[in-house]
């Protein structure tokens, strides 16, 4: 059963100065199933983040439809069981990580007691428990990224959407995120993420979509990636049109 269904969406932007139309996403259809880890990869400007922003309802597609668990993105309830990590997350920096997570869990409908337990557990998982009362403005980039992952996961969502989750993380941080995603996969969650780091994508995804200049070049299973001598080889071949 599809958790996220994208039907023939297109999106273009008008540049501010030259008033030129730039196609960000061109007629893309995707179907992300329950318990699947789905990766979107592509160069800068390929349209990965635009797709994610359309799923989250931040921007509207010019054409096409999106449903999340059967609901359209403009319906706030479509995000009730969604956890989202933006690219380069920037949070309310006068708040502490604990306060931010309290907001996240209350907004997602968790009761106080359950929220407190979840917050403590997830902060320990990402090694931020000892600094939970510090203001976010004192955090390093990697720590902010980990706080962002906690923000996305604290209410134990069924659908997790991560935009460049490895960005700014050191090798330990990356491993931690990979372990977290694998754990989510084991627990039957749907994960959609986009990344530049091909090795990580190869390690954790069931299926991968390769995008270039707003066009979907293909969707590949783990088996197909393996048969193509790895993700890097496959990506370069697909983008170069071989």
């Amino acid at each position: 059963m599809s958790k996220i269904l994208i039907k023939k969406i297109s999106k273009s932007y008008i540049s501010d100065f030259k008033r030129e139309k730039k196609i960000a996403v061109d007629n893309i259809s995707l179907n992300i199933d329950t318990t699947e880890v789905f990766g979107i990869i592509g160069r800068n400007g390929a349209g990965k983040s635009t797709i994610i922003k359309m799923i989250m309802g931040f921007i509207k597609p010019d054409k096409g439809d999106i449903t999340i668990d059967g609901k359209i993105p403009s319906d706030p309830d479509s995000r009730l069981k969604v956890g989202y990590l933006p690219e380069n997350p920037y949070f309310y920096d006068n708040l502490s990580a604990e306060e931010l997570l309290k907001f996240s869990s209350t907004a997602s409908g968790l009761d106080k007691e359950k929220a407190r337990k979840r917050i403590d557990k997830i902060l320990q998982q990402v090694d931020l428990y000892s600094v939970r009362k510090q203001r976010l403005r004192t955090y390093s980039k990697g720590m902010t990224q980990r706080a962002g992952i906690c923000f996305a996961l604290v209410h134990d969502p069924d659908i997790i959407i991560l935009d460049e989750p490895m960005s700014g993380l050191d090798p330990f941080g990356r491993k931690m995120v990979i372990d977290l995603i694998k754990d989510l996969q084991k627990r039957g969650k749907t994960v959609l993420f986009c990344s530049h780091i091909l090795n990580d994508v190869e390690r954790i995804c069931n299926r991968v979509a390769i995008m270039d200049s707003g066009i979907l070049k293909g969707i590949f299973t783990k088996q197909e990636i393996f048969e193509s001598n790895g993700m890097e080889e496959l990506f370069l071949n697909v983008v170069r049109g071989k």
């Binding site: 479509s78 933006p86 920037y90 907004a107």
Partner: peptide, 17 residues
């Protein structure tokens, strides 16, 4: 400007809320 709004709108809030 800094997209902290994503932090609120990624939760089940409508824009009016």
């Amino acid at each position: 400007d800094k997209h902290t709004i994503y932090c609120v709108l990624s939760k089940p809030f409508s824009r009016s809320q």
